[in-house]
Nucleic acid binder design. Structure first.
Length: 217
DNA sequence: GTCCAGGGCCTAC
DNA sequence: GTAGGCCATGGA
């Protein structure tokens, strides 16, 4: 069923090639900034950083906290997010000599657990970093994925993150393998957000949804 | 004016 | 282990 949803969405919208960003570090910044925030607001904050020549590791490392807060203000929760970005860079410097290459060279599970220990990194942020910046095979579960799966009777509405993640990963692993897996997780997440934005707002929007024929009666 | 967005943390029970 | 409050801006 999950596989059917993936391929149906892929036919309707794909390929989306998601998370437009120029560097891995930019992906990571976006992952923090988008926490409970619309991507429009995140783009505004990223623009501010780029204009200030600050959308890179070295600049944010040396930047005053207050200045960082002001630049990312449009993305909301700006005090928390500024502190979280600083925390991430401290972790990177202390554990991996400030090198994303070294960080991503670790075994997946070990790295995931390290990220989850950081203040401000929960399941979704950790997995977004692993998948979109590290190209590692991890499916990112977000509010849209939960909503779509619950609507289709695949999960309960309050299903736990790692359970939903396992369902998707088990389903897609059966048909794909190797490095292609990460590409499929990437694409599926993007497709779920796309269909969620377009069709999960109101009941009326269900009628034109590409998944509508799959809905349980 | 109200509601919500590509979460996560902390505190109570 | 989980429900509820909190963090904050910008667009609908």
């Amino acid at each position: 069923m999950i596989s059917t949803i993936y391929h149906t969405l892929a036919r309707a919208y794909g390929p989306l090639h998601w998370w437009p960003a120029r560097t891995r570090f930019e992906v990571i910044v976006g992952a923090f900034l988008t926490q409970n925030t619309s991507w429009k607001n995140v783009e505004h904050a990223l623009r501010n950083l780029r204009r200030a020549g600050a959308l890179n590791l070295a600049s944010i490392r040396r930047m005053e906290l207050r200045e960082l807060e002001e630049l990312i203000r449009p993305s909301g929760y700006f005090r928390q997010k500024a502190a979280r970005l600083k925390t991430f860079i401290e972790y990177l410097d202390e554990r991996h000599e400030g090198s994303l290459n070294r960080m991503f060279a670790q075994p997946l599970e070990l790295l995931r657990n390290e990220l989850l220990e950081l203040n401000g990194v929960g399941h979704e942020t950790a997995d977004a970093i692993l998948l979109y910046a590290g190209k590692l095979p991890v499916f990112v579960v977000d509010a849209y994925a939960k909503r779509v799966f619950a609507r289709h009777g695949i999960t309960e509405s309050g299903e736990k993150y790692e359970r939903v993640q396992a369902l998707v990963e088990d389903a897609l692993r059966e048909e794909e393998s190797g490095s292609a897996l990460a590409d499929h997780y990437n694409e599926f997440h993007a497709l779920l957000v796309e269909v969620g934005k377009r069709h999960c707002g109101t009941i009326a929007k269900c009628a034109s949804c590409p998944l509508q024929p799959l809905l349980p009666v």
